Amino acid sequence: MSFKGTLRPKSHCDNETPRAKLVMIGDSGVGKSCLLERFMDKNSTNNWISTIGVDIRTIYLDIDGKNTKIQVWDTGGQQRYRPVLASCYRGALGVVVVFDLTNRTSFSNVKQWLHEVEEFSALDADKKILVGNKADLQADRKVDQGEAQQFAQEAGLQYIETSVLDQTNIQEAFTRLVEVLTVVVLCCDVSM
């Protein structure tokens, strides 16, 4: 399976273009928006601004020779936005669950986020990826890599650690999930 993470202008998209919707969830301040921004633009300065509600970004990726529209819903992690999130899961083919490796509470809350996904969607575990962000802050780390990997394994999730600051595994995190979704996207009539 080939995957080229190239952005395409909207004019390359038509009604026959395969489509996928991804939702990014996790506590406020874990770096969801920064991960997405860095994925879309490697030269991004990542000036952090808290997401209010939901920010929807669209990218076009070449997957197995087909221009594929990927719509990423970047959600605000604050408790007050939780009622809005139920509608975000509708039609989603994949979920990126992000926690902060330097914030133990954000890791503990992953169970709650996954419960919410199960409540509002019918996604299989292989359509979800757990991302431990801020891997560059080793001295401040509160969540051990082995513990996070074990949790992910028990939940049937893929796990990867990323760093927006030094650009570690940003592309890989999205690539893993998009490759799993490719079979669904390219073989089914998926509309958003």
Rank of each mutant, 00 (worst) to 15 (best):
C187P: 00
K127T: 04
L85P: 00
K142V: 08
L186W: 07
A155D: 00
S33V: 06
G76M: 06
L85N: 01
R19H: 09
E118R: 15
G156E: 06
K42L: 05
M192G: 07
Y89V: 09
D124P: 00
G53Y: 09
C13N: 01
L61Q: 09
G26Y: 01
V180A: 12
C34M: 04
T75C: 09
R176H: 13
S33G: 13
E119W: 01
N15E: 13
L177N: 08
Q158V: 02
A92G: 01
T6H: 10
W48R: 11
V96R: 04
R176M: 12
D64E: 15
V98Y: 01
D74G: 09
G94I: 03
K111M: 08
D62E: 15
L165S: 07
E119P: 00
A139F: 06
E16A: 08
V30L: 05
H115K: 14
L22F: 10
T68E: 10
D140S: 14
L165C: 06
E116F: 02
L7Y: 10
G77R: 09
L186N: 14
G31R: 05
V180Q: 14
V110F: 04
T182D: 12
K21S: 03
F99P: 01
P18R: 10
F3R: 08
M24L: 15
P18G: 03
Y60S: 12
L36K: 08
K111T: 13
V143F: 08
D126T: 03
Q158L: 07
N43Q: 09
C188W: 02
T68G: 08
L22T: 05
G91E: 04
L114N: 05
N47H: 08
Q167V: 03
V190A: 10
R38Y: 02
E154H: 08
K127S: 13
K21A: 02
D124I: 00
K142H: 01
K10M: 14
M40S: 10
V117Y: 06
Q167S: 12
I25T: 02
T58W: 03
K32R: 04
S2K: 15
V30M: 07
